[in-house]
Design a protein around this nucleic acid. Structure first.
Lengths: 192, 192
DNA sequence: GGGGTAATGTACCGATAGGTAAAAAACTTT
DNA sequence: AAAGTTTTTTACCTATCGGTACATTACCCC
């Protein structure tokens, strides 16, 4: 059982190229030609390696969450609640205002995709968000240093909401410096 | 100089129908057939009355900002800073989780539209957001009851950011009850 | 009851969307 | 070197996209 013609591209770097264009243009705003051009391959190769556009997006989203979005799970291991939240909101600023990446968050962008054929993509994004929020809630439920008057579940959603807002602001053109001040203001409001 | 055949539709209600579908499906996710079907007219009538898809969206966005989005300017007239912010965040919850409207915010959705041909739409949305933020900042600059340690400009952006986050959460399926708790948590963090 | 005028209905346009069939090319094994 | 396997290349498919030409219809004015 031998192997045939070898691949002319690396699957992971091709996924990274696809991530760039999906991140910048969103699922609905990205065409197959955009993808194949960015990935340096042609359509049959794309389909053979990654499935159709929808499946490719699923793989790209997973790679996004584990790569650029990996700071979220790392943040949960910080010792204090304040530090956890600080890493989350500043991480959101860094992620969404990167100099070499598109501004905004792929997951936030995707959850807003409204077209009928984008619904599976939307569901993927919603599922990823739910998982992230559940992890943060569990972390906060085990904390003993919550800000006074805040329930763990509510605080988890609030922090998530601020992160989402940061992503929207970044996509709308707000600079990293401005959003860093926003993150600091949010921390000040919550913990000082 | 008489008028020819009269219109068979009311322009404002047609705009409202177009608003519904743009709100639900976004600019890129909405086709002309979606629009003409919802508006009850055919394409030549649409083009004669509203211009092309892009111009139609501009008129729809203006109508959205003055109608469902009108609570933002009304909120600025509240006597206290806390009341202004309270009206803004709870207004965002009401707007984005309406029972008879799509969940999420048209303006937030549009600012995330990434396709190349959606760029003028994105600019319209960004301009509307800038105007709203400037109005809030001016209102806060004249206040003498800001929460301690917050600058007016930073607070304006933070409140806007929380509203954006609420819109994203609503689009992702969060319920009105949950988001009401988020709004209350945000107020508590800022003012209590 | 005819002009003039503006909106409607129908049918169509080129371009592009996502997706695929089939043949040529590059490798491994025997 | 020949058979078998898998990828690449090229060319093409149908459906739909936003947008429009043209003839028809319904109104006002005289």
């Amino acid at each position: 059982m031998p192997g045939g013609r070898p691949r002319s591209f690396d699957a992971d770097t091709a996924l990274d190229r696809a991530l760039e264009v999906f991140w910048r243009q969103g699922y609905e705003g990205t065409s197959l030609i955009d993808l194949t051009t960015a990935m340096g391959i042609n359509k049959p190769s794309l389909y053979a390696a990654f499935g159709n556009k929808e499946e490719l997006f699923g793989k790209v989203l997973a790679r996004y969450l584990e790569g650029p979005g990996g700071y979220t799970s790392a943040a949960l291991e910080a010792p204090t609640t304040r530090e956890v939240v600080r890493l989350l909101v500043h991480g959101a600023v860094d992620l969404t205002t990167g100099q070499e990446t598109a501004h905004g968050c792929l997951c936030v962008k995707s959850v807003q995709a409204g077209g009928p054929d984008a619904e599976p993509v939307r569901r993927d994004a919603v599922a990823a968000r739910k998982a992230g929020e559940a992890a943060l809630r569990r972390r906060l439920e085990q904390a003993d240093d919550l800000p006074p008057g805040h329930e763990p579940a509510d605080l988890a959603v609030l922090v998530h909401t601020v992160s989402d807002g940061i992503a929207v602001q970044a996509a709308a053109g707000r600079t990293r410096e401005e959003l860093t001040r926003v993150a600091e203001s949010a921390l000040h409001a919550l913990f000082d």
